[in-house]
Design a protein around this nucleic acid. Structure first.
Lengths: 209, 209
DNA sequence: TGATTTGAACTGACTGGTCAGTGCAAAAAT
DNA sequence: ATTTTTGCACTGACCAGTCAGTTCAAATCA
């Protein structure tokens, strides 16, 4: 039953090459798009033979799909952590929202290429991994929707807000602001960006001071 | 001097086929991405021979670049109109912002495919049309930034806001909310969506009623 | 009027190159 | 001893871009 040596999730060597392939694929695809990126390029950047790609993944599309799952999984976990952290600290739902904005920024700061790639694929239709993407998107947005709904139930947010649409808008706000940050003013600090977005969220834009 | 027949901008037939090619290309590229879309497909959907594509455009990339210019030109004009409209009506900068949100929604409602395609390409690096995209993006975002700056100067907005980042965040808010609307709840009315975003903008999310 | 010419616009078969995926024997790692 | 990786040659499909030839409406001619 138990196979070789100490393990913590899958045969270690295999997992390591899969990881290298993910990393190579994510940057290349973010830069060039899925179709413009060749398997040879991915293999080369990962420092691996082409045959190894096919030993580890059934096809180019499958590699990409698993990459998507992997990445969004990290994001979802991070958002949940953020929301639960504020809850444990006795904060309200506004704090949870704020913490999630920060978690989003941290994620994008760490994995800008993945974010870019995700955005580029998210609303496409007629692609093989379309359904994977929907599922995985819903998992992430659902975390935000959950906090909003709880906030409404607790009377902390107006019950007139449209949960689904507001969640999407919040995600968009963070996403686009962060991509802009990384693309056009990468020298700014995360705290700085976070402060600007918090201000916007709390409606402290209009109104002097 | 005057060449054939009545004309008003360019040989009419040519302009008509170019328009057909734009329309064919925009939906196909939005669905599949640039590299996955073949020139044969574009020609076929436009009801035109492949050679005609190359008679009208130097290359596939050039067709795409001109398509980008064309589309963002429409958006920029529409945003400007919206802002100026409220100014003439004696409204403040909050009204201008609100009008621009609506203009953005109207645009996305009308050209969802173009919007999708634009978002997918916007933050890519290492692509031929990268510079075109930057220029054209800046034209659009500048309109929003302009209104924010005027609002700050007029004391209508806090002078602590980060104009560039806030503009990006606002654009992102509208963009993602609208794409979500079109993708997942297309039956909702524009007014409905607009109301939800206005509420978010004016900070009427937290705080009951 | 009808016949002829002109040239911009369009056509579609063809070419040269690219790339996903295969096959397999030998080497390395565990 | 078994799993994993390598290296490399090969195939067949696909595709951007080309080009010699066709169409047709307007212009010119007779």
């Amino acid at each position: 039953m138990e196979s070789s040596s100490a393990r913590s999730g899958g045969s270690t060597r295999r997992e390591a090459t899969r990881q290298k392939l993910y990393e190579a694929a994510v940057t290349l695809i973010a830069e060039q798009g899925f179709s413009a990126t060749t398997v040879d390029e991915i293999a080369e950047r990962a420092g691996v033979a082409k045959g190894t790609v096919y030993y580890n993944f059934a096809s180019k599309s499958v590699l990409f799909e698993e990459l998507l799952r992997h990445g969004v999984g990290l994001l979802t976990a991070s958002l949940k952590d953020a929301a639960e952290g504020t809850a444990r600290a006795g904060g309200g739902k506004v704090d949870a929202l704020d913490a999630m904005i920060r978690a989003g920024l941290v994620f994008i700061d760490r994995y800008p290429a993945f974010t870019q790639l995700y955005v580029a694929e998210l609303w496409r239709t007629n692609r093989a991994w379309q359904s994977t993407l929907m599922v995985v998107r819903q998992e992430a947005v659902a975390v935000v929707e959950g906090v909003l709904r709880e906030g409404v139930a607790a009377g902390e947010f107006s019950d007139e807000i449209d949960v689904q649409l507001t969640a999407a808008a919040l995600v968009g706000m963070v996403l686009v602001a962060a991509l802009d940050w990384k693309s056009f003013q990468p020298e700014r600090s995360l705290d700085d960006v976070h402060a600007a977005l918090s201000r916007l969220l709390q409606g402290r834009v209009s109104g002097r001071v």
